[in-house]
Every structure is written in structure tokens, then in C-alpha cells.
Write a protein that binds this DNA or RNA. Sequence first.
RNA 1: UGGGGAAUAGUGUAACGGCAGCACGACUGACUCUGGAUCAGUUAGUCAAGGUUCAAAUCCUUGUUCCCCAGCCA
Length: 563
Amino acid sequence: MSDVPSVPTDFIRQIINEDLKTGKFGGRVHTRFPPEPNGYLHIGHAKSICLNFGIAQQYPGGLCNLRFDDTNPSKEEVEYVDSIKEDIHWLGFDWEGREFYASDYFDQLYDWAVQMIRAGQAYVCDLSAEETREYRGTLTEPGRNSPWRDRPVEENLDLFERMRAGEFADGSRTLRAKIDMASPNLNLRDPVMYRILRATHHRTGDRWCIYPMYDFTHGQSDSIERITHSICTLEFENHRPLYDWYVEALGIYHPQQIEFARLNLTYTVMSKRMLLELVRAGHVVGWNDPRMPTISGLRRRGYTPEAIRSFCAKIGVAKQDSTIDIQLLEHCLREDLNRRATRVMAVLRPLKVVIENYPEDRVEEMDAVNNPEDPAAGTRKVPFSRELWIERDDFMENPPKKYFRLSPGSEVRLRYGYFVTCTGVVKDPKSGEVVELRCTYDPATRGGDNPPDGRKVKGTIHWVSAAHAVRAEVRLYDHLFTKEDPGDVPKGGHFTDHLNPNSLEVLTDCRLEPSLAASKLGDLLQFERQGYFCVDPDSTPDRPVFNRTVTLKDSWAKIQKKG
RNA sequence: UGGGGAAUAGUGUAACGGCAGCACGACUGACUCUGGAUCAGUUAGUCAAGGUUCAAAUCCUUGUUCCCCAGCCA
């Protein structure tokens, strides 16, 4: 992965370096990426993936497991595990067959629970969910011991066995760790280890009707897999004492949990709950809608794994809550696409141009550079003829100062074509709308070259020969939300209040240069002067559909904005 | 009002007692057959107040602000 800039030594890598020095884990480095299969991966997960797999790649002998944290069958589905695996691979990482599931450890976890009961460290509690909450106390007041806290070991053993056997109703009992109901850390107030839950698990089916909680699962799973550094996000910091407590109580290998700040992006929501809602409410077409921050959405939008990896390397890893400007992501995208995308000409909002002094039946094949950043990409032929399409925006009847494109009487370069001068404007007699431009061309400027008389022109515009044009649909995207922080809503408000009504614009009458008829899924394209585009899977042979991945930087737009 | 964390240019992130650096953004200018790219430059920062020290973003004290925790979610 030489295309990704070398990553700085963040605080996690410093810890690892230190552990390597002291021999804490015998010189091993073994991480894991532990998604819950209850949704699609998003760019925030990419940060974690790049961190965990990146560390494994960077250290000699380093390994990174993929482990699905599937302890809540009511929310988890195989569709999600499949998408997660696909997305990690697409990002460029591999778990080399170490694909594990927390559910693989259900038997071991059960045995450990029994071991804790025997040791007097766990008990079956008959409190209801509501009662449990009441007994827990509050942030400032200690909780009270459950009346079931001091049941004899034998009774606990019997009850727990019967919980497993399905003798009790969902939610009627739990297995709890006996820790400290007065702990200032609520996670240590006799946390639930097992709950009764009748739901079909995507892997274990109906074999279990009790499922372990995250806290009773994660550290032990790490321990079983001999993970050295268990990297997770900040909200689990309060859980670390419990993580440590369980592995110590069980007397098993003890990995080190380390927390870092999750990724936030401007104009984006990142919580799976909100993303799920966008999908379910139909605000987007699915998890892979090109406006979604999901990996599959970014992929369909035309993002490259290289761009995402580069982004993850640039944002750094720290413990400070932060929100990254989405422009940095777009910068990384443009940086990658600029050096890789094939340049083509495409007219999105067509305006007809007739070159009056160009012969009716003549067609010339003009040479066009495929990628000025990559000479090896070569050139292609683009047909030029008397009738062309140009961009409506590239003509103004009454242009402001500093407008370098076409206007009555002005001259521009048609890229790789000829210099043309606008000699006339045809309007719809009723609406007054400009429907056609009449121009003349200068034969001495063939290929777009400057003429021998030394005449120069400020503007160069793109064009497509009308007779040869490929028609296509083009989808233009903008931020899904109009607010930098869509989650920042006044009371009574909802994050969807800030949905951008213009996040998708569909153009159905676009005219593309003929080479685009051969474009296929995965092609990286730049429509010159407009942006980077990719082929959408909705494309059909007679109806290609393109997505705008990101615009080019547009200094003209800035000039306009300034007035 | 309990506990756990975090505070460095607009946004991120380095500096680990010794010149506050980098990236993105913004703004100039140069160049250009993409108003792209590229190049050159400008802009702007240590939460506050004390203290220790020849020297503090860094150590100490006090305060302020923000985030997380009261799921039988992860």
C-alpha cells in the first residue's frame, strides 16, 4: 500500500511501541476489528479498520482478526455480515481466514459463567428490567443490593441451568456479576452477564435462549483470540474496568483495551441508528445510496479505497472528540482521482451550436489527451462536426466581467477542436429562451492550437458532436444535510429536519462523447471542467447512468459568489 | 450535584522541559488548450489564572468548558 502516506505515530502506536520494548505481550501485535452485524459499515468504521489492520500490517508478524460481535440476535442479520466482509475487502484489507464470531464462544462463555457462579462471583437475579433500573441507583446515588444477590451457589447453578433450558420467560431473570452496587462506575453495579432472549440467531439458530451481554463477551473473546491490543472507541472507556474485572475474575489471558475518538464528519450523520432510519424512511434508496457515508454508498458514489485510506491516514488518531471537515475527505478523493481518472467530454445541460462556416458533411477526428497527469494513458479520437452541443452555462448573452466563455461576439477555444466566435443567437420566439448558437470557426486553430497570428483566448470549453453523441442520465449529488451538524437539533426537532432537498439532481438529457458508450462499472472518469464521475449500477446498455463523485474545484464559482 | 475522559490556528493533528510544525480550508500571485492540476506566498493557535524552572503546550495548583455513563444494546 505504497500509495498511502506513512502514518504518524499516534498515541496507540506509541503504546504498542512501548509494549514491544518491555516485552509485555512477548513481542506480539494482534488486533481485531469487531463489528456488530446490525448495519452496514460506514466511513467511521473505515477509520477503525485502517487503524486495526494498518497496525497489523505495519508491525512484523502483526495480525488482525475479523470478529463479529453477534451477541444480540434480535438486531443481527447475515445480510450485514456479508456486506461487512465485502466492504473490508474492498477497502483493501484481509483477515487471512481469521474470521471469528463471538457466537463461536457461546459454550465457553457459558462455562465461564458457571465458573463464576461457583466462585460466588455471579448470581441469578429475579428482578424485572424496571426493578433492576430502580435498584441501580443514579449517577450521584449508590444502588441497592438485589434481594437475590446472596442466593446459595447451588441454587444459582440450578437456576442458570434452567434459564438455559428455556424454563423461564424472556426478561424474567438475569445472571449478574456480583461486584459493587455502590460503585461510582455504573458498569460495575452488578452488571448483567446473561439475559433470556428467544430470538433466532443468524449462526446458532435456536440453540440458545440466553445470550451473553457485550461486556461479558468482548474481553473474553479478545482473550480467546490472544489479542494484544483491543482498540475501541471512547464510549467504552467506562467499560474498561469491567473488561479488566472479567478477565481477572476468570484468571485468563488479559489483553489491553485502548480507546480512541470516533470519526465525525461535517454535513453527515454517522450513527447506525440514524443511517438505518434514513434507509427505512426512504430518504435514500438504500444503504448504498451514493449520498450515504456507508462504505457501499461511497463505493457507488465513485470513491476509491485509496482515497479513503489516505483520508484515514491524514485525520490521525487521538482521544479528543472531533469533527472532520468533509472537505478533507473530498480533497483526498480529488487527489487520487486527479492522477487516475480518464478525461472525457460530456455536456450535462446541452445547448446546440451550429458552426456556419464548417462543411455540413464533414467529420474530423480530433486527438484528445486521456490523462494529462499520466502520459501512459495515451490519447483518443473525438469526432468534430458542424453541429455540436455545449454546456448552457458556457454561454451568457450578457456576461459579467471576467466571464471567459461564449457570449455574442466573443471567441473561445473548443477543447481539442477549434477557436469559434459566436455570431448569432437563436431564441424561442415565445419564451425568449436561447435555443441555439450560431458560430464561425477559425480553420487555423485545428486541434485547439493557438493561431499563427498570435491571437489568444481566455476561455476553453468542452463540447460533443451532436451527430455522434451518446445520451445518458447523470446524477448530481450534494451533501445529504444542510447543517454542519445534522444531529444538533432544537428540542422537538429531528435530524431529518436538516435533510438537503437538493441532495440529488437527475439530469436525463446529457450528451456524452462517443468513447463513453464503452464505459463500464468501476471506470474512473473526469468529465472535463465539471468533476469526477463513475458508472452507476442502474446503467443499462441503451441507458447509461453516471454518478458525479465530486466536482472539480471551481474558482469561477468563487468569483461569482464574491460578486 | 458521582465517576470516567478531553482541551494547540477556521477544522484536524504533531511537538513528550529547549525555535509551536504539518495537512485541509481561506486569501494573494505565477502558470495553464480543464476557471482543473501544478508552483510560490499570506493568513491564523497552546482554555484561564497562578506557581516550579535559566527555559513550560509539556510539570504542579486552582478554575472553566466540552464529551461519555443510570439498556436485560454494542
